[in-house]
Design a protein around this nucleic acid. Sequence first.
DNA 1: GCCTCTAGTATTGTCGACAATCCAACGAGA
DNA 2: TCTCGTTGGATTGTCGACAATACTAGAGGC
Lengths: 236, 236
Amino acid sequence: MTTRTARRAAATRRSMEPVVQESTPSMIASRVREAIASGHIAPGSQLGEANLARELGVSRGPLREGLQRLTAEGLLISIRNRGLFVIEMTPERVQDMYLARQAVERAAAERIHDGDPVAAGGALMGVIEVMARARSARGEGVADIEFHQLLVSLAASPRLSRMHEILMTETRMCIHALADSYVHGDAVRVEEHTAIARSFLDRDARLTDELLAAHMTDAVRRLTAGRSTAPPSSSA
Amino acid sequence: MTTRTARRAAATRRSMEPVVQESTPSMIASRVREAIASGHIAPGSQLGEANLARELGVSRGPLREGLQRLTAEGLLISIRNRGLFVIEMTPERVQDMYLARQAVERAAAERIHDGDPVAAGGALMGVIEVMARARSARGEGVADIEFHQLLVSLAASPRLSRMHEILMTETRMCIHALADSYVHGDAVRVEEHTAIARSFLDRDARLTDELLAAHMTDAVRRLTAGRSTAPPSSSA
DNA sequence: GCCTCTAGTATTGTCGACAATCCAACGAGA
DNA sequence: TCTCGTTGGATTGTCGACAATACTAGAGGC
């Protein structure tokens, strides 16, 4: 009975945040998504519904609904009467992923330049500094992730943010799968991030665009270095 | 028993396409998505599960799974214990949608210029011509849709294509909702499309980028013309 | 020895029913 | 007359069970 009065109060004066009750499938999707991104669930592995349902303490109904959401995001692939499988990160997919990231982040950067690039540049500098200080304590790559997530969120575009979130999940998955070839470029990345942030402070939209494109190209080169375009174990 | 031998044959020689049996939730999602895109289901309306399930001849289980997919795409919003509602196209959302479309299509165009822009330009010219001939017979906007879908598909990027597909669904929904203010710019659009296609034939990447950006800006201006940023009936 | 066919097993796909929650209408009291 | 509490109806959320399908192991025949 308290919900009605609370809602009405929120309607009259918007000081208190309305209680948003996340749906169960959404929570399940978040959990499983996190497990995949953090490498807890290996790429290519099958997700047994019964096991997962037991593990999460829910029935198979809500579980399947949450997993459908991840399938829509492209994180899982569904084969009828066979089950759901986590995607494997082939070099082609890494390349395509970074192409999409480039599209999203460059658009976000352009939009920031149309708004308040100086404030954005300051915020980015801040996160770089904080992350540099806390580096090596946390896992590798969190600084990278944090920077790019902030970059896109500063564009204040719901759709770009949603797209980027999906792509960052895949990126994190990729980082864990190829951890050895990722850690090397840590210092390089920080430097590139700093240059990008500075270009915002300088209001140099063209430079930001070039730096971002180069940053992405570097990343995809590092990740696919020494790997052929077709991995040894590929399944249909 | 024929499936095993068929699959083995497909594995050895890839002449015949393997039988891909689409999952039921996926088919349901396609149906409902189409119904929303074509305006058959009004924006803002609630989707009653029991009715839809009866209408599609399936149980509520698979139906809910398919609807979860549309929720992940951002086409529906879920309110716990209340139901699923089709999103409403406010001017802000239209603007954001076209921002995302700009990001995707410009990236696709850039990638085409890295590949074979002349062939792509030819293909685009072809679809423009075919659509100009069959115009006014089909509904408004199909030429526009067709052109942009072909443009992105020519980039041969799965992720860009998937993102674009989602955005085009929203675009179609928007067109039907604002049909009156859309039909006017039909001739203008064809002209702009032709210019874009020609820029591919001329291998002028910078021009393509500028034309695409302008094309998007025009579209969003036409669609939001005369409308305030906040519609009279807005719900939280 | 190799291939083919045949159960057996495990998993997914689907359905119906029950429980929980919410909205709207109605009536009682200040 | 306005506000509050209550009841009724309808919808969503969740669960368990059944049916359908695909992989695996083993026996039999060539």
